[in-house]
Design a protein around this nucleic acid. Structure first.
Lengths: 354, 354
DNA sequence: CGCCATCCTGAATCACATT
DNA sequence: CAATGTGATTCAGGATGGC
């Protein structure tokens, strides 16, 4: 039952699963965009809009029925201490949020995904729609939901992770394509799922995605050694997702150990580079003279023998020095050349600059 | 009726106002926070939570009734091209947003106010709640709402203003206090209202706030020379707001002139330039790369091969594009340099300004 | 190989006045 | 009310190609 795609309607599929069997539901339902005619950029080119049938609903009432049905089914399969994540935009998220509350879930946070590179408003009629909203909810107000506070803090310069996350949209090599054409119109970035799963699940936990689409949830879950269940109605999408997920190499178990102690938390946003996939967990870093070798773990900490912690701490420990600037000390090999972490940080800053 | 505080229930007060008399409603309704017991900081000190009676509702149904009542009353007093702004947090904003949609308003954007200095989550059980959400909605999908696009772009270093706004919370000298104690628990920063009013109103427009509280909306409206109506149930808050607003010095009218949108500029037919002798019949116009050449005819039409017509039509035909702005596409040569027609139009406007 | 210019694209509720 | 004409309007990231 685990780690496979169920074809078909998500409500029926969830109803067929045993109750209280899932740790986390991550859902990216249709947004009910209600777009008008064509839209052209100022240069005359056409915007490739989401006009698929699966995003068409007759009315708000229709959409609400659909929403409540799947939310109810999801709540049944969730363990009592499990949690729900839903993503949406202003077109649908208010209806979804109200339904979440009405069905007895307890909202823990709303999270804003601030897109580093959103599509502009071409006609100058509104504000650039530069974010999407996620809702994180427990099954009940009393539930003892999982929140890996330390791992989140480690990922964020040793500061509490905030409710606004700056991440790029999914593009470039990460975007799944078929014959050069995007395989799914709304593929989510893996960095987003990485943060959600790192925050709210543990290794071997069960993650269910009722609207699997291109399979981002399954791919990240497999990479992070979580069990996954994906439900998808469209055979084409399911095939894309299956192939994509099968190609994922799970991370090394050791690298996945999210550090839970304050001591090991890195003081720098090196974790953000890991999250973005700019540095993969398990990567071996060396100094310029290749005397020391340290492994990158899932939350952005390093491990060298018995020493673990931030890139600075481990660098200092390796040399027996009182302190060390990990950004300039550690390097990784790219095409046979040693690149300092500092260069990666520079790239990161450019990609997430406001 | 304008520029004063109405004491009492906001629904009754709005129902007593003439319909279609208000340009903008800005509302900061009770959030229905549902706080449990007291919240303490790690050092044992107590967090001053919002536990006032006005923020207590018996159930979601109660809160929904309340929300729909005031949203309906607000919609009646709004002019057809007026707009609504509401601010809230995850506790209430989903219910508010669903009601906004159900009542026929048309959501234009949701805006995230990203707090520069939010209160941390002291227990480390959730993400730092670092933002609030605003909804901007027109009265109907067809409404021609006001959006000062240019002014927003100017405010953002000449880039489109995005849907995520980074602003500090209200503190320091701006925070209204009585005997050293904050006069209102949820006073909003003036910077937030400033941006909303600059984006969506004009000088002498009418702004209504059904939950005036400490009076931020009135204070900023007065400063920006907008008319305001504030409704407040609590006599204490009303007194605070009245005093605060009265102390505001309206800005100098000259400083208030915001960048005007090109759409608002008077329309100029190309023929008028020919008529004025600014462009002579027979002049050859080219695009910037000198790929196309068109002749100006006596009636202000262009000719390019077999195509003839307006500057826009011929520009579009030349490129094989569906449309074209002839003002920026076509240029004429003056002293060896290519000058866009748009520059000539600007000259024309200046010469005919009186 | 590096650098620069060019091109493509992304969950988008995307104009308005006159005839 | 529908059709037509004018004319306003874009940001960042990644890929590609030329020199």
């Amino acid at each position: 039952m685990l780690n496979r795609i169920i074809m078909g309607d998500c409500v029926a599929a969830m109803d067929a699963l045993p109750e209280k069997s899932v740790d986390l539901v991550f859902a990216d339902p249709p947004y009910n965009l209600q777009l008008g005619g064509d839209l052209r950029r100022p240069d005359g080119s056409m915007v490739d809009a989401v006009t698929d049938d699966w995003d068409r609903f007759d009315s708000f009432a229709d959409y609400d029925r659909f929403t409540r049905d799947w939310l109810r089914a999801a709540r049944r399969v969730l363990k009592d201490d499990g949690a729900l994540w839903v993503i949406g935009s202003y077109h649908n998220i208010f209806r979804v949020g109200a339904a979440v509350q009405d069905l007895g879930y307890w909202i823990l946070n709303d999270i804003v995904w601030r897109k580093a590179n959103p599509m502009p408003n071409f006609k100058g009629t509104r504000f650039t729609n530069a974010h999407e909203t996620l809702i994180w909810a427990a099954k009940t107000p009393e539930a003892r939901y999982r929140f890996n506070y330390r791992a989140m803090k480690a990922l964020n310069e040793d500061l509490q992770m905030r409710s606004d996350w700056v991440l790029p949209i999914c593009s470039g090599a990460e975007r799944v394509k078929l014959d050069g054409v995007k395989a799914h119109p709304t593929q989510k970035p893996e960095s987003l799922l990485y943060r959600v799963l790192l925050a709210c699940t543990e290794v071997d936990g069960v993650v269910l995605d009722p609207f699997l689409g291109s399979g981002t949830t399954g791919a990240v879950a497999r990479r992070m050694r979580r069990n996954w269940i994906g439900i998808e109605r469209d055979a084409g999408y399911a095939a894309v997702a299956a192939e994509r997920i099968a190609a994922v190499e799970p991370m090394d178990t050791a690298d996945l150990e999210a550090t839970m102690s304050a001591r090991a938390a890195p003081k720098v946003p090196f974790g953000a580079l890991v999250e973005m996939g700019m540095v993969t967990p398990g990567t071996v870093l060396t100094d310029l003279k290749r005397r020391y070798r340290a492994r990158v773990r899932a939350d952005g900490s390093l491990q060298l023998g018995r020493d673990s912690g931030s890139i600075h701490r481990v660098g200092a420990a390796a040399q027996g020095a009182p302190s060390c600037n990990g950004w300039t000390f550690w390097h990784l090999e790219q095409r046979g050349k040693l690149v300092p972490l500092d260069a990666m940080r520079q790239q990161y800053r450019e990609r997430t600059a406001e």
